[in-house]
Design a binder for these strands. Sequence first.
DNA 1: GGAATACTGAGCCATGGGGCTAAGTTAGCC
DNA 2: GGCTAACTTAGCCCCATGGCTCAGTATTCC
Lengths: 119, 119
Amino acid sequence: MAQYSSTLDGLFQAVADPTRRAVLSRLGSGPASIGELAAPFDMALPSFMKHIGYLEKTGLIRTRKSGRVRICTIERGTFSLIDGWLSEQRTIWEGRTDRLEQFATSPDPDPRRDKETPA
Amino acid sequence: MAQYSSTLDGLFQAVADPTRRAVLSRLGSGPASIGELAAPFDMALPSFMKHIGYLEKTGLIRTRKSGRVRICTIERGTFSLIDGWLSEQRTIWEGRTDRLEQFATSPDPDPRRDKETPA
DNA sequence: GGAATACTGAGCCATGGGGCTAAGTTAGCC
DNA sequence: GGCTAACTTAGCCCCATGGCTCAGTATTCC
């Protein structure tokens, strides 16, 4: 369970942690090194690195090594996946379920409702 | 640790699970009973109930007992907290760090704000 | 009243997340 | 070359999460 195979799983999980959200906020105003990012936190570096690793794994940030310093930059595009999910929800609320994946490909005029698939 | 004292922590955590997202999507098109909601999932009821409990605890849904059936409804307003966070991030990107400056520089070492009443 | 339905509660278990320390490794600087 | 700074890797710990089963409780139906 919870192996984060799905993108949204990992994304929301990544963003569910206050440390990681703070890092994202910080990176929002420009790239920074691991050391700079870690400084405000009362946390051992390896612990902090796990957060960075997570953010990178989920695509919310990108990092590159420059000498002995690792620079992190935010990956804004990834945030749109969250936006996308929110929009999806609101679309459902409005009753326009046309975007749902199982309906997108089959314009079946016969709505068989023996079981309404989740998601 | 993540004991979800902070609203956003719990919200994102709640939404990070595919089962719970599916439930939210389902409830987006109207209220449903626990049984109806649980039906599509290959999961024991008590396990499923934990998800419901989580969604309710974080304010994403509301439930009420009607006879022996519990009816769940989505709480749309809570979603705006997620929207709000996204907007905050984008505001930072745009360089307008007016009131968000402190948020970006202090990692909030004591995140114990319990409930900021979902709109 | 008794059976069936629909949850609900109490526990148990395995996994993984978030923290730690200690010991590397690599790059930059005398 | 040797020292330091800046990560990195390895390994450990705790406990919340997400799943389970096995009862209970409360309604509804016959």
